[in-house]
Design a protein around this nucleic acid. Structure first.
Length: 644
RNA sequence: GGGCCCGUAGCUCAGCCAGGAUAGAGCGCCGGCCUCCUAAGCCGGCGGUCGGGGGUUCAAAUCCCCCCGGGCCCGCCA
């Protein structure tokens, strides 16, 4: 991977990387992967585990070879030594500062290092893709925050990125919703007006009430396991919202001869594209999505395409894909249904190749029943349509890679889709379809259930967080106008929420605690915003920097030196985080940088520095911190603030 | 029954893929710091059998095996 425009420190490391390759044969990617900050400052700025590669060779000889090689690259600001088997790298901060100042005066600013020209890929990031039957909740917020951040990272890395939202409008869930509105005889807009609710919240209420009422009917017949009492109490809770409207809906659903048959009818007529189901179903889904867009807009999340599952069917893509699948030798009849023998694909195609096993992420002893593609009644299943959609994502965007941000509970279906792609001979697609899996957000003690109306909506959390932030902003800025304070508060709220969802590794389960997100002293998103505001403020007061006056000798002070090295490492850290799809690495880097800056801030004033050369040198550090925070926060979707 | 994810300080987590340098942060708790660039900050302190056991290795939080705890998945649901 290339690291274009990484600045002087990254260039120094890359030169060292080349030298390591020519002297001990470690390739550049391995070098970049293994180089790390040493545990103790006195070892150096970076460490590389040399011992692992030079077992039988003299370490001194290697050191000498490397130094000679570096001179060949005319890099004179990198010092090397070996301690306990580690190659330690120490930059000469004065020389580095001198080079930096020249770069800065020609307009350079630290940002993520970009890939080389030939490495630019087209990458589709599909994320959020919430079912359009209730408002976005905190689970979707995690998905959206991760997905949007991944998209921003890959774009900053220099790739072409296409962001897609997949609208699942063909399932039972949307049919339940459509049935609810049909029974009510009202549009989503009318219900929203009456409930004085945001449209997707109104939809969510109708959905939960309809779904639970249907389940109650089924439970009485013994078809649904949940107890009649618990369903009845859910209904009673939902009913509170608007007793009259609720009763109309409940009674209407109860009167249906056979709600299950009614749902099937809606689903099959919609799949066939028949009216009036086509308009009704699309209509309710579109209403919900309008609500999604309002919320996502506040969160700073945008999409390039909104893909309708139904369009995959209606356009004929699904049947073309099915025709191809039918020709596959892995097709089997499972009773009257058409199925794909995925276990056999795994055994015959994947297992023999170690490389493919890894890329496909095949579990050991993979053995599961055939994957039904077409039901005996001729209708298709969700994952059948998803196979077609997967192909669509590659073809429509001419994508090299597709990243699907989907919860970990879908690992098996995602694997099955990769296997189906292999059955179609689409090896490149199967290998380059990445399931970016994350663990779900849970409520303390239980999961969120949209069909019971049990969730913490993102809108509520945003609202609470904003109100909490507003109090604080007004307290700290007594003269501030309410409008301006509100705008700041909203950005703090968004920053707090997005950061808290992206900072922990995606595989860590998050138990959602409203208090945690609202407590800004425990939350690190606002901490970064605050740090940025401080840096901004200093530069405001300092005025334009005169680079010609900078005295790089000022960087020998240990905290200043640390800041110089840390900020100049950003281009590489950010690029690695993007390549590895690890936003959390970027987040923890930014926190460390903010810590160093705040520690320095406390004891080494910039604008009160009497020596002009030192003052300009310090102002440069502030500018570096500000530029890095601005780049990093932008990628994390945490809004930057000039005051708070 | 099988598979996958997680288990590190009171709490939330980083480090594990690519084994090596005294296991790191934050919060909480205790004690300090605002006539000085925003105290959403800073300084100091307390706090760890890395879930348990075995193995591989000169070296294991990291690799392998077994076990325990939490979660998820194995549907002609989405």
């Amino acid at each position: 991977m290339g690291y274009v425009d990484g600045g002087p420190l990254v260039d120094g490391l890359l030169a060292l990387g080349h030298c390591i390759k020519s002297t001990i044969g470690v390739d550049n990617n391995t070098f970049i992967k293994l180089i790390e900050r040493p545990p103790r400052e006195e070892y150096g700025d970076f460490g590389f585990p040399l011992l692992r590669f030079t077992r039988d060779r003299g370490v001194e000889g290697v050191l000498e070879g490397l130094s000679n090689c570096l001179r060949g690259y005319s890099i004179d600001y990198v010092g090397l030594n070996v301690v306990k088997g580690f190659l330690n790298v120490r930059f000469d901060e004065v020389k580095l500062g001198g080079i930096l100042v020249k770069l800065l005066s020609s307009g350079w600013a630290p940002g993520m290092a970009r890939v080389g020209g030939g490495e630019v890929k087209t990458i589709v990031v599909e994320h959020t893709s919430a079912n359009p039957v209730h408002p976005l909740h905190m689970g979707h917020a995690r998905n959206a925050s991760l997905g949007d951040t991944l998209a921003r990272m890959l774009k900053a890395r220099g790739h072409r990125v296409v962001r897609r939202f997949y609208i699942n409008d063909m399932g039972r869930q949307v049919a339940v919703l459509a049935l609810g509105f049909k029974v009510l005889g009202l549009s989503p807009e009318e219900v929203a007006l009456r409930l004085k609710a945001k449209i997707d919240h109104a939809v969510g209420w109708v959905y939960a009430l309809t779904h639970t009422t249907i389940d109650l009917i089924l439970a009485r017949r013994g078809v649904v396991e949940e107890s009649v009492e618990s369903l009845a109490s859910t209904i009673a809770r939902l009913r509170e919202r608007d007793v009259e409207l609720a009763d109309r809906l409940i009674e209407g659903v109860m009167k249906l001869e056979d709600p299950e048959a009614e749902l099937s009818r809606i689903m099959s007529r919609y799949e066939a594209g028949l009216e009036p189901e086509r308009s009704i179903v699309r209509g309710v889904a579109e209403s919900t999505i309008r609500g999604f867009k309002e919320t996502l807009d506040i969160m700073g999340v945008e999409f390039d395409y909104w893909d309708w599952e139904s369009d995959i069917v209606w356009s004929g893509l699904l049947s073309r894909t099915l025709d191809e699948l039918r020709r596959s030798t892995y097709i089997v009849k499972h009773k009257d249904a058409l199925a794909l023998d995925v276990a056999r694909i795994a055994r015959e195609v994947v297992e023999p190749s170690r490389e493919l096993s890894q890329a496909i992420r095949l579990p050991r002893g993979f053995e599961i029943p055939p994957m039904i593609l077409v039901r005996s009644d001729g209708t298709t299943l969700y994952w059948t349509r998803d196979i077609a959609y997967s192909i669509y994502k590659f073809e429509n965007s001419k994508a090299d890679m597709v990243v699907n941000v989907i919860a970990g509970e879908q690992r098996l279906p995602q694997l099955q889709i990769r296997l189906a792609l292999l059955a179609l001979g689409k090896v490149r697609e199967a290998v380059n379809m990445i399931h970016y899996d994350y663990e779900m957000v849970r409520l303390p003690g239980r999961v969120m259930r949209g069909r019971r109306g049990e969730y913490v909506s993102l809108d509520e959390v945003l609202e609470d967080a904003e109100a909490r932030a507003l109090q604080e902003v007004l307290k700290r800025n007594p003269g501030l106008g309410v409008e301006e304070a509100r705008a700041i508060a909203r950005k703090i709220a968004v920053g707090a929420i997005r950061f808290s969802l992206v900072q922990p590794g995606a595989l860590k389960p998050i138990v959602f605690d409203v208090e945690k997100v609202l407590n800004f002293e425990e939350n690190t998103g606002p901490y970064l915003q605050y740090t940025y505001a401080r840096a901004h403020n200093i530069l405001e007061k300092h005025g334009p920097i005169d680079f010609s006056l900078v005295d790089p000798r000022a960087y020998s002070d240990s905290l200043r030196r640390a800041l110089l090295i840390q900020t100049l490492t950003y281009p590489l850290v950010a690029a690695k985080a993007a390549d590895e799809l690890r936003p959390e690495d970027l987040a923890s880097y930014l926190l460390k940088l903010a810590d160093t800056f705040n520690r320095w801030y406390q004891r080494d004033s910039v604008i009160h520095e009497p020596d002009i050369g030192a003052r300009e040198a310090k102002a440069v550090l502030v500018k570096l911190v500000k530029d890095v925070l601005s780049s990093g926060l932008e990628i994390l979707g945490v809004p930057v603030l000039e005051r708070m």
